[in-house]
């Protein structure tokens, strides 16, 4: 940190910067492209809108704004994202930590028991029966509970914890601190980068999910539990079927796939934007070390 300003940039450093900026351009331009296309008319989009929007129209955005229940769905989506990602991170990291404890009975077997869940998938019908029998249909918990312990995140957290400096753990052991105390006073502060990572992963996943809504929230009972992504998905689908109104079975079976691309672009833009706004706050935790000048020279 202290010396960084004085250092001169090496050729390698310059190359590094240029390459990264080039890659970033490849990543940012598509979003810009999505934006300028989402505010251009469909005919112009077909002609190709590459640099600036043409024949600006906010139709796609008005369409989204007019979806019934869109504002309450934002609330539901934010709630499931915040609660869901925190719970997933908390539950998974506690279990991961417990599985690193040498005193944990059968810990290797238990670890494998959890890992295997990444590879087993029973299919839709048994899962539907399960959710239905648990009474999770038309309940907010259906967004939270099923993903609350994730094998994949567990592996990542456990790997991280195991690479943390052991001496600290052991010294805490000597103090006679219990596992919960150690989790709170050691794992949470030292594991901040990984926990921030997991929260980010889980939050993005929660924010983008809609199929649990589609299958498990239905009718009047679920009316106030719809998520933003689901309403957008549904709107997109009904726009497709509106496009094919008046077709016979031959057409209907196939034509359902007609896609109003500009609408999809507008939807993408408004769902990506919040992620990009919140992201830097989480990022603090997993890139802070870099900012401190982890690697000098």
């Amino acid at each position: 940190m202290k010396s960084s300003k004085k250092e001169r940039i090496t050729i390698l450093g310059l190359l590094n910067t240029v390459l990264l900026l080039l890659f970033v351009f490849l990543c940012v331009y598509p979003l810009y492209y999505i934006f300028i296309n989402s505010i251009s008319t469909a005919t112009e989009v077909q002609r190709g809108v590459f640099l600036f929007p043409r024949k600006v129209t906010l139709m796609s955005y008005t369409n989204i704004k007019n979806i019934q229940g869109i504002y309450s769905s934002i609330f539901v989506s934010v709630a499931r994202t915040v609660i869901g990602s925190l719970i997933t991170c908390l539950f998974t990291s506690i279990l991961a930590y417990l599985l690193t404890q040498r005193e944990m009975p059968a810990r290797k077997a238990l670890y494998r028991f959890v890992i295997v869940t990444m590879y087993i998938n029973a299919g839709f019908i048994p899962y539907y029966l399960l959710i239905s029998n648990l009474g999770l249909k038309n309940s907010f918990l259906v967004y939270i509970l099923p993903g609350s312990v994730s094998a994949y995140y567990l592996v990542l957290i456990k790997t991280y914890i195991e690479s943390m400096p052991l001496e600290l753990m052991e010294s805490a052991d000597i103090d006679g601190a219990g596992p919960i105390r150690k989790f709170v006073s050691l794992v949470i502060p030292l594991g901040k980068p990984i926990l921030a990572c997991i929260i980010t992963f889980a939050a993005v996943w929660q924010w983008n999910s809609w199929s649990d809504n589609l299958f498990f929230i239905q009718g009047s009972k679920g009316r106030n539990l719809h998520t933003l992504q689901f309403l957008l998905y549904q709107n997109l689908q009904s726009n497709m079927s509106a496009a094919i109104r008046g077709t016979d079975s031959a057409a209907a079976a196939a034509a359902i796939k007609i896609t109003p691309t500009t609408l999809r672009m507008a939807m993408t833009f408004i769902t990506v934007l919040p992620i990009l706004c919140v992201y830097p706050f989480m990022q603090r935790y997993f890139t802070s070390g870099i900012m401190l000048g982890a690697v000098k020279g």
């Binding site: 239905s132 029998n133 648990l134 009474g135 999770l136 249909k137 038309n138 309940s139 907010f140 918990l141 509970l145 009047s220 009972k221 679920g222 009316r223 106030n224 539990l225």
Partner: peptide, 26 residues
């Protein structure tokens, strides 16, 4: 919570018992 959810499964009306608050809200 898990057990409570399990109970709901015995009746066919599991879904109804789980969502009284949401209905009221609606």
């Amino acid at each position: 919570v898990a057990a409570g959810c399990g109970k709901g499964s015995t009746g066919t009306s599991g879904a109804e018992t789980a969502a009284p608050e949401t209905e009221a809200a609606a």
